[in-house]
Design a protein around this nucleic acid. Structure first.
Length: 154
DNA sequence: GCCAACGTTGGC
DNA sequence: GCCAACGTTGGC
Protein backbone atom coordinates (compact mmCIF):
# COMPACT_ATOMS: atom_id res chain seq x y z
CA UNK A 1 0.00 0.00 0.00
CA UNK A 2 1.16 3.46 -0.84
CA UNK A 3 1.76 6.17 1.70
CA UNK A 4 0.98 9.87 1.43
CA UNK A 5 1.47 13.26 2.96
CA UNK A 6 -1.45 15.67 3.27
CA UNK A 7 -0.81 19.33 3.96
CA UNK A 8 -3.11 21.50 5.97
CA UNK A 9 -3.00 24.83 7.68
CA UNK A 10 -3.77 24.10 11.33
CA UNK A 11 -5.63 27.39 11.65
CA UNK A 12 -8.02 26.27 8.93
CA UNK A 13 -8.28 22.58 9.79
CA UNK A 14 -5.55 20.93 11.79
CA UNK A 15 -5.07 17.83 13.85
CA UNK A 16 -7.00 19.31 16.78
CA UNK A 17 -10.08 19.82 14.64
CA UNK A 18 -9.76 16.31 13.26
CA UNK A 19 -9.44 14.86 16.75
CA UNK A 20 -12.68 16.59 17.75
CA UNK A 21 -14.62 15.57 14.64
CA UNK A 22 -17.24 12.81 14.86
CA UNK A 23 -15.49 9.43 14.60
CA UNK A 24 -12.32 11.53 14.19
CA UNK A 25 -13.19 11.58 10.52
CA UNK A 26 -13.33 14.43 8.03
CA UNK A 27 -13.69 15.03 4.32
CA UNK A 28 -10.41 16.18 2.80
CA UNK A 29 -11.79 18.65 0.29
CA UNK A 30 -10.85 21.93 -1.33
CA UNK A 31 -7.87 20.58 -3.28
CA UNK A 32 -7.65 22.83 -6.34
CA UNK A 33 -4.39 21.79 -7.91
CA UNK A 34 -4.45 19.35 -10.81
CA UNK A 35 -1.43 17.33 -9.81
CA UNK A 36 -2.72 16.90 -6.27
CA UNK A 37 -6.17 16.15 -7.68
CA UNK A 38 -4.72 13.39 -9.83
CA UNK A 39 -3.13 11.72 -6.82
CA UNK A 40 -6.43 11.85 -4.95
CA UNK A 41 -8.54 10.70 -7.85
CA UNK A 42 -6.29 8.05 -9.34
CA UNK A 43 -3.97 6.69 -6.70
CA UNK A 44 -5.08 7.17 -3.12
CA UNK A 45 -6.83 4.00 -1.92
CA UNK A 46 -9.09 3.26 0.97
CA UNK A 47 -7.09 1.89 3.89
CA UNK A 48 -3.87 3.68 3.00
CA UNK A 49 -2.18 5.94 5.50
CA UNK A 50 -0.90 9.49 5.25
CA UNK A 51 1.09 11.90 7.35
CA UNK A 52 -0.90 14.95 8.37
CA UNK A 53 1.43 17.89 7.83
CA UNK A 54 0.91 21.34 9.33
CA UNK A 55 2.02 24.21 7.09
CA UNK A 56 1.95 27.99 7.36
CA UNK A 57 2.25 27.91 11.12
CA UNK A 58 4.76 28.48 13.89
CA UNK A 59 6.04 24.90 13.84
CA UNK A 60 5.68 23.36 10.40
CA UNK A 61 5.87 19.58 10.52
CA UNK A 62 4.14 16.23 10.73
CA UNK A 63 1.50 16.20 13.44
CA UNK A 64 -0.09 12.79 13.04
CA UNK A 65 -1.14 9.88 10.89
CA UNK A 66 -4.49 9.49 9.18
CA UNK A 67 -6.15 6.55 7.48
CA UNK A 68 -8.08 6.94 4.24
CA UNK A 69 -11.60 5.71 4.97
CA UNK A 70 -13.13 6.61 1.63
CA UNK A 71 -11.43 6.78 -1.74
CA UNK A 72 -11.98 9.65 -4.14
CA UNK A 73 -15.45 11.04 -4.73
CA UNK A 74 -16.51 14.31 -6.39
CA UNK A 75 -15.63 17.21 -4.11
CA UNK A 76 -18.96 18.58 -2.82
CA UNK A 77 -17.41 21.95 -1.99
CA UNK A 78 -16.86 22.61 -5.69
CA UNK A 79 -20.64 22.49 -6.25
CA UNK A 80 -21.53 24.79 -3.35
CA UNK A 81 -21.84 28.42 -4.38
CA UNK A 82 -21.40 29.56 -0.82
CA UNK A 83 -18.19 27.63 -0.34
CA UNK A 84 -14.92 29.49 -0.83
CA UNK A 85 -13.76 26.58 -2.98
CA UNK A 86 -16.77 26.77 -5.30
CA UNK A 87 -15.86 26.22 -8.94
CA UNK A 88 -18.48 26.90 -11.59
CA UNK A 89 -16.39 24.81 -13.96
CA UNK A 90 -17.02 21.66 -11.97
CA UNK A 91 -20.44 20.09 -12.45
CA UNK A 92 -21.83 16.93 -10.84
CA UNK A 93 -22.10 15.32 -14.28
CA UNK A 94 -18.44 16.06 -14.96
CA UNK A 95 -16.64 16.75 -11.69
CA UNK A 96 -13.34 18.52 -11.89
CA UNK A 97 -12.27 18.14 -8.25
CA UNK A 98 -12.19 15.21 -5.86
CA UNK A 99 -12.17 14.67 -2.13
CA UNK A 100 -11.39 11.74 0.18
CA UNK A 101 -12.38 10.94 3.74
CA UNK A 102 -9.70 10.52 6.38
CA UNK A 103 -9.77 9.32 9.96
CA UNK A 104 -7.19 10.27 12.56
CA UNK A 105 -5.19 7.14 13.33
CA UNK A 106 -3.01 8.78 15.93
CA UNK A 107 -1.24 11.93 16.88
CA UNK A 108 2.52 11.99 16.82
CA UNK A 109 4.00 12.09 20.29
CA UNK A 110 5.55 15.35 19.13
CA UNK A 111 5.60 17.37 15.94
CA UNK A 112 8.22 15.95 13.60
CA UNK A 113 9.39 19.29 12.33
CA UNK A 114 10.23 20.33 8.82
CA UNK A 115 13.62 21.39 10.16
CA UNK A 116 14.29 17.88 11.42
CA UNK A 117 13.15 16.29 8.18
CA UNK A 118 15.33 18.68 6.24
CA UNK A 119 18.36 17.56 8.21
CA UNK A 120 18.05 14.25 6.35
CA UNK A 121 17.39 15.79 2.93
CA UNK A 122 20.70 14.55 1.57
CA UNK A 123 20.55 11.25 3.42
CA UNK A 124 17.71 8.92 4.24
CA UNK A 125 15.08 11.37 3.06
CA UNK A 126 16.69 12.18 -0.25
CA UNK A 127 13.93 12.65 -2.83
CA UNK A 128 11.12 13.23 -0.35
CA UNK A 129 8.69 15.47 -2.22
CA UNK A 130 8.13 17.70 0.79
CA UNK A 131 11.79 18.67 0.77
CA UNK A 132 12.02 19.45 -2.93
CA UNK A 133 12.70 23.06 -3.62
CA UNK A 134 9.62 25.12 -4.36
CA UNK A 135 7.33 22.22 -3.58
CA UNK A 136 3.73 23.27 -3.02
CA UNK A 137 1.74 20.09 -3.55
CA UNK A 138 -0.89 19.51 -0.90
CA UNK A 139 -1.07 15.77 -1.64
CA UNK A 140 2.26 14.03 -1.99
CA UNK A 141 3.44 10.45 -2.24
CA UNK A 142 5.82 9.11 0.42
CA UNK A 143 7.90 6.05 -0.37
CA UNK A 144 7.83 3.06 1.97
CA UNK A 145 11.44 3.66 2.96
CA UNK A 146 10.81 7.32 3.72
CA UNK A 147 7.66 6.45 5.64
CA UNK A 148 9.44 3.94 7.83
CA UNK A 149 12.32 6.31 8.48
CA UNK A 150 10.07 9.20 9.46
CA UNK A 151 7.92 7.04 11.75
CA UNK A 152 11.12 5.94 13.47
CA UNK A 153 12.19 9.56 14.01
CA UNK A 154 9.33 10.02 16.41
C1' DG B 1 2.11 27.90 -28.41
C1' DC B 2 4.69 31.64 -26.14
C1' DC B 3 5.32 34.31 -22.23
C1' DA B 4 4.47 38.26 -19.15
C1' DA B 5 1.51 39.35 -15.49
C1' DC B 6 -0.72 37.99 -11.67
C1' DG B 7 -2.24 35.22 -7.64
C1' DT B 8 -1.04 31.70 -4.28
C1' DT B 9 1.88 29.03 -1.30
C1' DG B 10 4.60 28.67 2.56
C1' DG B 11 9.05 29.13 5.05
C1' DC B 12 11.34 32.51 7.46
C1' DG C 1 5.69 41.28 6.14
C1' DC C 2 9.07 39.58 2.79
C1' DC C 3 10.05 37.05 -1.05
C1' DA C 4 11.18 32.89 -3.87
C1' DA C 5 8.87 29.55 -6.42
C1' DC C 6 5.26 27.87 -8.77
C1' DG C 7 0.57 27.51 -11.29
C1' DT C 8 -2.84 29.88 -13.95
C1' DT C 9 -4.52 33.28 -17.03
C1' DG C 10 -4.95 35.68 -21.16
C1' DG C 11 -3.18 38.60 -24.98
C1' DC C 12 -0.95 37.90 -29.07
Amino acid sequence: MAHWLLKTEPEAFGIDALARAPRRTATWDGVRNYQARNFLRDEVRRGEQAFLYHSSCALPGIAGIVTVTRAAFPDPSAFDRKNQHFDAGSEPAAPRWYAINVQLARRCARIITLEELRAHADGKLRGLALLQRGNRLSVQPVSDAHWQFIVALE
